[in-house]
Each structure stands twice: as structure tokens, then as C-alpha cells.
Write a protein that binds this DNA or RNA. Structure first.
Length: 209
DNA sequence: GACCAGGTCCTTG
DNA sequence: CAAGGACATGGT
């Protein structure tokens, strides 16, 4: 709620297509978004920004394009693997969206290189499933705000679901707001003490959202 | 030069 | 299950 008033609405997750969101979700693992953007535009420029094209790429070629995002060996492998599995299992993202959340989670979960957060990001932002994405910022923020019953990822999800329910747009928005907020105020590990929001939120976030 | 970024996997105790 | 290391580039 507080964050909302500061930044307003946003659809969030940069990316023109669902395919690009999937790729971005993998590339951004422990990596600054500015580095990810370079990789994405390189892929786009070569006309390869589709799961179909990516699935058929040679790993060295893909590595050449995503080098700036770091961890390029694992990420290239993951991108190719995810792309070909989706292609084989569903044909394309559109078809995937019609499947139930549980089935999609079971499909994504065993893929190497797709961890909890990446999976949630794909489910939420590419597949429109009502899942709240918990990242390092979220844990830190709620921790700093003194939300005690929300110290594990699972607890945080439950906590957020209690306040925003299954409203897809709100879930998308809330994670986006946290990331934006964090980028401005939370450069260092302990959340910035001079942040105006945190002062207010010692009351705010805990019981509204 | 050190530290960090919208993590994940694998190995140890 | 918690902790520790590896993976890697680019910005401050």
C-alpha cells in the first residue's frame, strides 16, 4: 500500500513478449538488469528472441550473446533446455497459459537452472499465474519491517496471499514495486536507515500490504 | 581493487 | 537441513 502510493501502478517486468520474459528471468539471476538488457537486445537484434529459435541454438553461439549477463555457461544451458522443453511439451507459451498452475510448476521445477524465484517469475509474469515472487529484496524488506511470521519464502508467500489474495495484477505489481523501491533505497545490506518509507512502514506494511 | 547485482547447484558436516 | 563455494560480467 505504501509502496503503491509512491510509485503507482506498473505492469512491470520489462520485456515485449512472454518468450523474452522467460529469457530475462533466467539471465537476471544474481545479475544487474543493465547487464541483462545488453544480452536481450543482442538476441533480439539477431532475430532469435523466441523459444523456437533459442531451442535450436548451439550453446557457444548463445554464450556469445549473453556474455554480459555473467554465469553464461549455466544460463545458456538453462535457456536452451527450457526452450526446448516448452516447445516439446506445449508448442508455445500461449498453450502453456491454459494449463493449471500446479501442472506448470511440476513441469518447470525439475529443470536445472530454474530455481524457486526464477520459476515463480516465469509463472507470474510470463504465464499469468497468481504467484508472488519472493527475492532477496523482499526477504530483507519484510525482515527489516519486523514481520516475524514471514522469515521463510513459503511463509512470505502465504503472508502476501493473505493480504492481496490471488489478484494477479496486484501480485505482479507488488513484486515490481519492491524491486524498484529497493533499487532506490537499499544499496547496502542493511536497509537504508534514512529511507522515508521504512519509517512509515514500521506500522504500514505489516497490516495493510 | 573490493563489493555487489531481481540465484542456483553441488558438496559437506 | 545449514553452510560454504563456484559460477562470471560490468558498474560504482
Amino acid at each position: 500500500m505504501e509502496l503503491h502510493s509512491l510509485y503507482g501502478n506498473m505492469h512491470w517486468w520489462p520485456g515485449d513478449s512472454e518468450d523474452e520474459i522467460v529469457v530475462g528471468a533466467i539471465l537476471t539471476q544474481n545479475t544487474a538488469w543493465s547487464n541483462v538488457e545488453k544480452s536481450l537486445s543482442r538476441i533480439r537484434k539477431h532475430g532469435l528472441m523466441s523459444l523456437e529459435k533459442l531451442a535450436g541454438m548451439d550453446k557457444p553461439d548463445l554464450i556469445g550473446m549473453i556474455r554480459s549477463s555473467g554465469f553464461y555457461n549455466q544460463k545458456a544451458r538453462t535457456i536452451i533446455e527450457v526452450s526446448s522443453r516448452i516447445l516439446q511439451g506445449f508448442g508455445r507459451i500461449e498453450a502453456m497459459k491454459r494449463e493449471p498452475l500446479g501442472k506448470l510448476a511440476d513441469f518447470l521445477e525439475p529443470i536445472k537452472g530454474i530455481g524457486q524465484e526464477t520459476m515463480d517469475a516465469i509463472l507470474c509474469y510470463a504465464l499469468d499465474k497468481p504467484v508472488f515472487v519472493v527475492d532477496k529484496y523482499t526477504t530483507r524488506l519484510l525482515g527489516r519491517l519486523g514481520v516475524k511470521d514471514a522469515s521463510t519464502v513459503a511463509e512470505i508467500k502465504k503472508y502476501v496471499n493473505n493480504s492481496v489474495g490471488e489478484d494477479l495484477e496486484k501480485l505482479k505489481n507488488f513484486h515490481g514495486l519492491i524491486v524498484n523501491f529497493a533499487k532506490e533505497y537499499c544499496r547496502s545490506k542493511p536497509l537504508c536507515k534514512s529511507c522515508p518509507l521504512l519509517k512509515k512502514c514500521d506500522f504500514g506494511l505489516t497490516n495493510s500490504d
